[in-house]
Nucleic acid binder design. Structure first.
Lengths: 282, 282
DNA sequence: TGCTGTGATACCCCACCGGTATCACAGCGC
DNA sequence: GCGCTGTGATACCGGTGGGGTATCACAGCA
């Protein structure tokens, strides 16, 4: 009836993200007039104003913001449909496991050891990307970390629990300490906590540096610009310029294996079983 | 790039559900040849065989089954996008609360009393429909019941916990009992447990009658065809021909209020707060 | 007062969706 | 063996509409 077409969703997301018809059109590989028309038609069909075109630029209305969120998830579902279908048709497809680089490294090695390296493909991703990769069909299972990652909508199995350490520049006074508390690390004036981009791509206010990848963060710690608190097993973080100090009152971090509840894949179930068995033998 | 169009998703779902091009075309309001072409084109683009056309009928391949699931959720996301956008643009929209008819009736009345009847619209639905209504934007919040309903993907707040009762035909010998156990009610030869349709619309095997609405079930109990075990507060079930007997070892049922985690609506948050406050004063 | 950069409008073309007519083929009754 | 029926696929054709170019309207700004 008045469902939006895939094309219209893509077009709107492009405009809403660029906030500029010309650039959005370029990104989409079409000319600007058809784009204007398409967006106008969507607004007319919905009976809702999505964008306010004032002199010098475009802004989202509240309804437009809602549609941006919804359109993104709808598009993810659509690409997931083709991806999962293609993969379902491939007889010897390996499972794809998404995990943050460097996190729970030993556990991952043990898991690979048990299930065999060939039956799984590892997809290394940046912080908190796993949920999106599971959702859009790029991955079948993911290693995630409570309470860091958003587990909403996934089935999970706990694998291990561990304490957290502060990663500090080796030269910093706090690096010599035997142990630290959250209070001590949360307000170090010369090592402000780094700021990650929010869902809309903007950064929260604060004194810390802006980062969007793990390696940036590692670099910034080495440069004595920031500190961070992470699970003890995140070995990839340990540069020579880093020192890890236990944070005694930081909440424990649970490593979990997560998958989509609607997945009926036997291979996923077997992998989860293997991972859970791994936990019990340790 | 090679995302499926909304139209193609709808077409495929229709064919996959009907397993018959002619009927599917009729349901879609188009002629059969364009439908055949469209499906063929999708198969070609994906490089995957979705349907096997053998003499006398069509069947889904494994990949086709995957696409059917994925396409359904993608379509739900698409319709949700327009619905939520329209609702976001409506300044005095009431919240829509989905709930099974008759379940947690008193609690619902108290909630309406607190927040005001005009700020909420009640959407009565059949068993386990709430999740779908939340997902496709038909409802903003839902009253759900653990462990009956699938809470995956939603944020929830517990509201109350209660024991369960067996609903029996008044004339049945077991109806005279003070209390019952799960073992006693689970294998009564003349009152077999009713069978609900599964996700694919088919019914599981078993001796019990097939049902797909609550009222059918209530009727069947009154006719001495089946029995059921439900939360004690489900008052709407209490026909004159019914008797409720406590089932002492049945697991407690928790009534929850559920909403989509991505909802940033202040009204939803306020409603949840009101509901939680209701719990504490009781 | 131009100049620049923005999105909207005017107009044209052709790709593609959907329609009708027809085919290919398998079951089935005789 | 013959039609007859019911299935999905193919052939062809016309109209809608998406995309293109050219241009406008208008606001900032030197």
């Amino acid at each position: 009836m008045d469902d939006l077409e895939t094309r219209e969703l893509r077009y709107f997301v492009a405009v809403a993200e660029e906030l500029h018809f010309g650039r959005a059109a370029e990104r989409l590989g079409i000319a600007q007039p058809p784009l204007s028309r398409a967006i106008g038609k969507v607004e007319h069909r919905l009976g809702v104003e999505l964008l306010t075109r004032n002199r010098r630029g475009v802004t989202l209305t509240a309804a437009g913001q809602v549609l941006l969120d919804e359109a993104r998830t709808a598009l993810a579902a659509i690409t997931a449909a083709t991806r999962r279908t293609r993969r379902a048709a491939d007889p010897q497809r390996p499972l794809i496991l998404a995990t943050k680089a460097g996190a729970s490294h030993e556990l991952l090695l043990r898991l690979l050891d048990v299930v065999g390296k060939d039956s799984i493909e590892i997809l290394l991703c940046e912080v908190s990307e796993q949920a999106g990769l599971l959702r859009d069909g790029s991955a079948d299972v993911a290693i995630m970390h409570h309470p860091y990652d958003d587990l909403a909508g996934f089935d999970t199995e706990e694998l291990q629990t561990e304490s957290q350490v502060a990663i500090l520049p080796a030269k910093h006074p706090l690096a010599a300490r035997e142990k630290l508390t959250l209070a001590e690390v949360s307000n170090v004036p010369d090592l402000p906590i780094a700021r990650w981009p929010q869902l809309d791509g903007s950064y929260p206010d604060g004194p810390g540096p802006e980062v969007h990848t793990q390696s940036q963060l590692a670099q910034l710690v080495a440069l004595s610009k920031t500190l961070l608190v992470i699970p003890a097993s995140s070995r990839a973080w340990q540069w020579p310029e880093h020192v890890a100090v236990p944070v005694v009152d930081a909440p424990d971090v649970t490593t979990l294996i997560a998958w989509r509840p609607s997945s009926r894949s036997l291979a996923v179930a077997a992998l989860v079983r293997s991972a859970a068995a791994l936990r019990e033998t340790t």
